[in-house]
Amino acid sequence: KLLSSIEQACDICRLKKLKCSKEKPKCAKCLKNNWECRYSPKTKRSPLTRAHLTEVESRLERLE
C-alpha cells in the first residue's frame, strides 16, 4: 500500500492505542462500548529543516 492511502484509526482508538477496525460511521470498538466515534483530519507533519537536523546532530555528539 502507498503511504498516502493508509487509513487512520478513529480518535479514541488512537488515543487509547487500540486496534481500530476503521469502519465508518462507527468502528467496532466504539460501537461495542457506545463511545462517540470521530475521525479527525490527518495532520500534516512539517518537513525537517536543516537547522533542526544540525541541532539534533550536535546534541547527539555531546551525549556520545
Rank of each mutant, 00 (worst) to 15 (best):
P47M: 05
S58Y: 02
E36T: 10
K26I: 03
E55Y: 10
K42W: 03
Q8I: 15
R62F: 03
K17T: 03
R14I: 03
Q8A: 12
L63Y: 15
I12F: 11
S58D: 14
E55R: 11
L53C: 03
H52M: 10
N34D: 08
L60H: 05
A51P: 05
T49F: 01
K42F: 03
A9K: 00
E61W: 09
H52Y: 07
C27L: 02
L2M: 13
P41M: 09
R14K: 12
S58Q: 13
P25T: 04
S40H: 05
E7W: 13
K32N: 12
K24W: 11
L18M: 10
K24P: 04
A9V: 03
K17H: 15
S40P: 01
R45N: 00
P25I: 00
R45T: 05
E7F: 14
R38M: 08
L2Y: 10
I12Y: 12
P25L: 09
I12D: 08
C27E: 08
R50N: 11
S5W: 01
E55P: 04
C37L: 00
R45M: 02
L53K: 00
L3Y: 15
V56W: 00
E55V: 08
K16T: 08
K42T: 09
K26C: 14
V56S: 04
R38E: 07
K44Y: 06
I12S: 14
N33H: 13
K22P: 09
K29R: 15
K32G: 05
K32W: 02
L3S: 15
R38L: 10
K44C: 01
R59I: 00
E55M: 11
W35K: 13
L48G: 07
N34E: 11
K32M: 03
E61I: 09
L60V: 07
E7A: 15
R45G: 04
E55S: 10
S58P: 00
Q8E: 05
S40Q: 08
K19Q: 01
A9T: 09
K22Y: 06
E23G: 05
E55Q: 11
K29V: 02
I12P: 11
K24A: 13
A51E: 01
E64L: 07
I6L: 02
E7H: 15
L53A: 01
I12L: 15
P47Q: 03
C13Y: 05
P25W: 02
N34G: 14
W35A: 11
K16F: 04
V56L: 10
L48F: 03
K29F: 03
S58H: 12
Y39V: 04
R14S: 01
K42M: 01
K19M: 04
Y39K: 09
Q8H: 14
K17Y: 09
R59E: 05
P47C: 01
R50A: 02
L48W: 06
H52P: 07
K1L: 11
K17R: 08
E57Y: 02
T49I: 02
C30E: 06
Y39Q: 03
C37Y: 03
T49L: 05
I12A: 14
